[in-house]
Amino acid sequence: MKLALFGANGMAGTQIAKEALMRGHELTAIVRDPARFSLSGDSLQDSFASRLTVVVGNVLDPISVAKIVKGHDAVISAAGPGNTTANNPDLALIIPQAAHSLIAGLTAAGVNRLVVVGGAGSLFVAPGMQLVDTPDFPVQYRPASLAHREALGIYEKADLDWTFISPAAIFMSGDRTGKFRVGTDELLVDEHGESRISAEDYAIALLDEVEKPQYIRRRMTVAY
């Protein structure tokens, strides 16, 4: 498949890029600064050179989005402000803005498939109670979590074959095990009550969904 990936420089984006290339896909990695793009080693990146194109693009500009994604089979968005919202909550606004831009850009380009790296905050932990609304939810992560929740609502109204993939509550680089559980709208926890997933295993779940869609126009989640 020919895939376009926004936010390829981030933690999730880097692992998604690596997983897509390891599976033999053609990948257009869309970044703001190509000099910062790396697949954890020049030799690894060189081995994928024939199937990897790195371009500069703006996920907040529908015209830029449409121009870049035209001709691709699917678009993946891992774009976001990262952890910077802890010091500047307004940066979280990038998340819903990107949702509007991606929908407009993909529609203009005639690309119907969109897979989005979402947040865990809007997952339900009890009937009518989402993780972000629980009393102990970390204040520093609240702006981004609320923004992801807003973005999910935007995608739910879109006339595209979208999938919004929420990670577990603890989401960081780790091991690639290939062993995890997939759910829908509820936070998944293990036998110790922990909710976690590595970026490496999250990337596996995301590419599985890209290759063999099971959650069209739905949210899914992945955790151990």
Results as ranks from 00 to 15, higher is better:
A144V: 12
L207A: 10
S198R: 11
I154E: 07
I68V: 15
A98K: 03
F180V: 05
Y141V: 04
I154K: 02
K212R: 15
A104E: 15
H192D: 12
A78R: 02
L60H: 03
R219I: 07
M22Y: 09
D190N: 15
Q214E: 14
S198H: 10
T14W: 02
G24E: 11
G174A: 14
V111Y: 05
A104R: 15
R23M: 05
L102T: 03
A126F: 03
P135F: 09
A12R: 01
A79S: 11
G7L: 03
A158Q: 09
V65F: 04
L5Q: 12
V222K: 08
Q97S: 14
P138F: 08
R196P: 00
D175C: 06
R142I: 07
A108C: 05
D46P: 00
I94D: 10
M11H: 10
L123V: 06
T53V: 08
A29K: 12
N112Y: 08
P81Y: 00
L146A: 08
N112K: 14
S43H: 03
A120M: 10
A79K: 04
D61C: 04
A147Y: 01
D133F: 08
V189T: 15
H72R: 12
V132F: 04
R142V: 06
G105P: 00
L39R: 07
V117T: 13
V182P: 00
D208R: 14
G57I: 09
D201Y: 03
V69A: 06
L146M: 14
Q140T: 06
T134V: 11
G183N: 09
S195V: 13
E209S: 11
I103W: 00
T177W: 08
A169P: 01
L187W: 04
V132G: 00
M1I: 14
A78V: 03
G121C: 11
R113C: 09
G24R: 11
M1S: 13
N87L: 12
